[in-house]
């Protein structure tokens, strides 16, 4: 995975610590500059990069004069890891699906981030585990959105609800959710149109859909290649509709995914899956802490992929 490239760079910078015989301010600055540049190159939000630098600097400077070199080394390393972990991890736990009752999930995100594709992967993931899953198309805006989800649903043999001619996303979402609820479906997935914070009307529409179907959780789908604009958008989505968890897509590309990681800190919601391709089984579970540990070569605890 390409996020690993970021990990390598940080590890390299940290390794310099072991080579330095004294750790003074100059060495510390060099290492921090290198780490910052790796993070910026990976599109981590610039404010977080500055924050990380300051945090490490403050903690380490305090100890600089009265601790042994080995201890300072450890301190720098653990502070960097801690700060990265803080960014990726959230105290909020993802919604847990309950068997034998309807669990309604609403997919939201920017245009083209991969919602419709990821909805289908998500459905497929749970179908294979024996859940009764239904897909609802509430994207009445994008040309071909109805056919896209319908074809996807057919490919994975998942029941589908949608109307080609309907123009009101609120109405169709409500009808679809009710339809699957009546049939005792367990996971009901609502796909919505792409939108962005600058279009107030689109955000209001999202809130209306949310009010109409009262989802158990909202999933925010984010493209891994996104840059500095990501934080603002994620923050706005979270403000408009509480984001329950995040899925990062297109990690089969070259993007290092740092922009999307900033989305986690903006929404305070955990990443639960990553998308790694266009096919419906290209979805992997995500665990932040084992991810960071593996990223930085600190030993594989638990493993990245849980199935």
């Amino acid at each position: 995975m390409v996020l690993a490239e970021l990990g390598q760079k940080i590890t390299q910078a940290l390794r310099k610590l072991n080579q330095a015989t004294v750790i003074d301010e100059k060495v510390l600055n060099e290492i921090l500059t290198e780490i910052a540049s790796a993070l910026l190159g990976a599109d981590v939000n610039i404010k977080y990069v500055a924050k990380l630098r300051d945090a490490v600097k403050t903690i380490v400077t305090l100890q600089m004069n009265n601790a042994a070199v080995a201890n300072i080394r450890k301190l720098i390393q653990s502070t960097v890891v801690q700060e990265l972990t803080n960014m990726l991890q959230s105290e909020n736990k993802p919604y847990e699906f309950k068997k034998g009752k309807p669990n309604v999930v609403m997919f939201v995100g920017l245009q083209g981030s991969g919602k419709t594709t990821t909805c289908t992967k998500f459905a497929y993931h749970y179908m294979r585990k024996g859940w009764r899953v239904g897909l609802v198309c509430a994207d009445t805006f994008r040309a071909g959105a109805f056919e896209q989800l319908k074809m996807n649903a057919a490919k994975i043999k998942c029941p589908f609800f949608g109307h080609k001619k309907e123009t009101d996303p609120v109405k169709i979402a409500q009808e679809g959710v009710n339809f699957f609820k009546e049939q005792k479906f367990e996971i009901i997935i609502v796909d919505t149109s792409g939108r962005h914070k600058q279009e107030t009307a689109l955000f209001e529409e999202m809130q209306q859909v949310q009010a109409a179907v009262n989802p158990d959780t909202a999933l925010f789908v984010m493209d891994s290649s996104i840059g500095q604009a990501c934080y603002d958008q994620a923050l706005a989505f979270n403000k408009a509709i509480k984001v329950g968890s995040v899925i990062i897509t297109k990690l089969d590309g070259h993007a290092r995914g740092g922009g999307a990681l900033s989305a986690v800190s903006a929404t305070q919601s955990p990443i639960i899956f990553i998308g790694t391709g266009e096919h419906f089984d290209d979805l992997e579970s995500f665990n932040a802490s084992s991810f960071i540990k593996r990223l930085l070569g600190l030993g594989d605890i638990g493993g990245l992929v849980q199935t």
Binding site: G41, D223, S225, I226, G227, C230
Partner: peptide
Amino acid sequence: GEALVGNDAIDQLTK
């Protein structure tokens, strides 16, 4: 290409 994309723009175009 999107205005949203970050550093990856360089790699996309080059490749």
